[in-house]
């Protein structure tokens, strides 16, 4: 038994006008929460669709649980929540869910008991109202999202793939989603989700892969990624506005390679060969009244911006990442 839930090797997907994914390789260990990060148009959705055999790669191989992803029954072990969500509007909630479960190979009677449990758990069936008997288009948007989410998990998949799961969620549903992801991990399931909101990824993911323009920029465990970029970032805060002399020190390219104003503090990336001690000394000499001077681990957000940069977002690219 392979201990990799997903093993993608050298996958390329070309469209008539552009290359969506270029020689991408990534490995997702079983039981991990994995973040697929990248700007819009980076190739995230294309990658996910290839994993699910919705589109076929032009080159490369995709293996799920040690088996070819096109093998019979393999995709029945995967649950998928697409970025754009939708259900049959005129069908009853229970029937839609039963249909989705049967498509994943869950027998009808089994599906019905699971649906009942899930509806209660997501408070779609309460003492006053059983939304399961309502048609989908009678439900509010939030409730429809819950139904869609149930549909993704109904067959108890070992691998859950969520494409931009946080987009369009209100804070309450977003929290519920985070809780569910944590619970899935606790039950030994593998979760992979794409996002361009780094905050979510940083909090939730064990490992990440950053892709831009169809290519992998970096990947690995979040702690490793952060460690690899640590030691070069300093958080600085002053009492009052910095003087011109202090400003000049901050703008010295031999000391500071990059500066990100976070309002309450500045996040500085030290220039190649520069020492944080030198910077502190120079700042004190320039008469800065320091409130904070701290070597910090960079945020994923910071790493993402550094690695992808403004050029990572291809101009004029629309549609799905």
């Amino acid at each position: 038994m392979s201990d990799l839930a997903i093993d993608i090797r050298g996958v390329t997907k070309r469209y008539a006008e552009h290359v969506a994914v270029r020689e991408l390789s990534l490995q997702v260990p079983r039981g991990a929460v994995y973040g697929l990060l990248g700007p819009n148009g980076a190739g995230k959705t294309s990658t996910i669709r290839m994993i699910l055999d919705i589109i076929a790669p032009d080159e490369g191989t995709i293996t799920l649980f040690g088996k070819k992803h096109t093998d019979a029954g393999v995709l029945d072990r995967v649950g998928y929540l697409p970025e754009e969500r939708g259900l049959y509007k005129k069908m009853k909630v229970r029937e839609v869910l039963k249909f989705l479960a049967e498509l994943k190979g869950v027998p009808g009677a089994d599906a019905e008991t699971r649906i009942a449990t899930w509806l209660e758990r997501m408070s779609l069936k309460t003492a006053e109202k059983d939304w399961g008997e309502s048609k989908v288009d009678e439900l509010s948007r939030g409730m429809q999202q819950k139904v869609q989410f149930i549909g993704t998990l109904l067959h108890d998949p070992e691998l859950v793939i969520l494409d931009e799961p946080f987009s369009g969620l209100d804070p309450i549903n977003a929290q519920a989603l985070k809780d569910t992801v944590v619970e899935l991990k606790a039950r030994g399931k593998t979760v992979i989700f794409s996002t361009h909101i780094m905050d979510n990824a940083e909090k939730l993911c064990d490992a990440v892969c950053i892709i831009a323009r169809g290519q992998k920029i970096l990947d690995g465990a979040v702690s490793d990624v952060k460690a690899a970029h640590a030691g070069r970032t300093v958080a600085v805060a002053f009492d009052g506005a910095p003087s011109a002399a202090v400003d000049a020190v901050l703008r010295d390219p031999t000391l500071v390679a990059n500066m990100d104003d976070q309002n309450r503090f500045l996040e500085l990336e030290l220039a190649e060969g520069a020492m944080s001690g030198t910077l502190l000394q120079r700042l004190v000499e320039a008469g800065a009244s320091l409130q904070r001077f701290e070597r910090v681990q960079p945020s994923l957000h910071r790493i993402f911006l550094e690695q992808v940069g403004a050029t990572g977002v291809e101009a004029g690219m629309s549609g799905h990442g």
């Binding site: 055999d53 919705i54 029945d76 998928y80 697409p82 754009e84 939708g86 259900l87 498509l103 869609q148």
Partner: peptide
Amino acid sequence: ATRVAEVVISS
């Protein structure tokens, strides 16, 4: 239009 298609063809 309702994007159900993508869910179905993932199965």
